[in-house]
Structures are given as structure tokens and as C-alpha cells.
Amino acid sequence: MKWTWWKVLTVVCLLYSAVAGFLLPVPRLAIVNESIRNLYFHVPMWFAMMVILGTSVFRSMQYLRNPSARLDILSHEAAKSGIVLGLLGLATGSLWAKYTWGAWWTPDPRLNAAAVAMLIYGAYLVLRGSFRDEQQRARVSAIYNIFAFAAAIPLLFILPRLAGNSLHPGQTGNPGFNKYDLDSTMRLVFYPAVIGWILFSFWMTQVGSRLAFLQLKLDEK
């Protein structure tokens, strides 16, 4: 395998965030206490998910303009990586909620919207599995993928904000992190963690795609 710069960067960023995430100081806040460090692990899942799902949609659009089995594979593998990251985001969020809000799940607009977004993506996998004809599968799933992404944007970024009251941070007003949520020392770990997990998702997608390309090549022979 080739050690490209971004693979080295993935290893460095992830190991750095695992060490610095526990050892660098964090703000002393009531209720969250030390669990504020979850920010370094829970939030990057969602960042990486959005980036890799965006890549998947981009590949789907490319497919519809210029159909090829390779583009279908790239889009499918990227969507799979995104779904894995989204599920990990939901699981870590649920665990964090249990110990700060007192329940595994709360009927919170952001939580429910994120769950619905994941279900929509789950349907993508079901849809793909229901076709025998490869070209039809590739075309329909490319179209559905665009719909799923278009549905995920309002579900994750707009509706929770319109709904107002929420326990989830970054909810009222600006959905990003304000000064209270993220201070400058936390950024030192948070940004490398985000970069690391985004690159990790690309790496997973790349390996999966290359394997699928080989399968394709063998099938063609």
C-alpha cells in the first residue's frame, strides 16, 4: 500500500486526539463535568458523516451525468461509511445523554431528526438490495441518494433550530459552537479530531471501493 500524506495525517490526528483529548485541560462546567471531553469524539462523527455523505451525493450526481459502475461503487461505499459514522454518532450521543440529561433518549427535535435522517439512509441500503439489474440499481439508488441528502440537510440543520427548545448544545440561535461551548484549548484537540475522522472515513471508503472495483473486474472477466 502507498503511504499517501493524508493517510499519515489520519494516523497522526487520531492518535493525537486520543491522547490530548484526555490530557489537555477543559473548562470546568457543572453537569457535564469531565464528560465534556466527549465533544472530541461524538461531534467529529457527525462532521465526518456530513463530509462523506456529501462526497457520496457528488458521486451520485456524477453517475447520473455520466453512468459508470465505478461511480456507483464510489457513491455506495461513501454512503456506507457515512451510515456507520451516523450510527456511531447516535450511539455516543445516546450514552452521553444518559449521564448528563438522565435518559438514553429524549423527545428532542435534534435527536429525533437525526434518527429520522439515519432511517432515510437505512432505506437507501434496503433499496439497493432490492434490485437485480445493476444499471437500474445504480440509477435508482443515485437518485434516492440525492433525495436522502436533501432530506438530511433540513432534518439535521434547519428543523431542530426552528423547533427552539432543546437540551442539545448549539441549539438556540447559532447552531455552531459559541464561546461557552468551545474554548481555545478545546479547539486544539477538536479540529485535529474532526480532520482525523474525516480522513479516516475517506480511507475506509477508499479501501472498500478498491475491493469492489476488483470484484467488478473479476465479474467482467
Binding site: M1, K2, K7, W203, Q206, V207, R210, L211, L214
Partner: peptide, 8 residues
């Protein structure tokens, strides 16, 4: 990654 590279 290495296994896939070898297969490739």
C-alpha cells in the same frame, strides 16, 4: 489496505 493493494 495492504491486502487490497496486493490483490490489485
Amino acid at each position: 489496505d495492504r491486502k487490497v493493494a496486493r490483490l490489485e
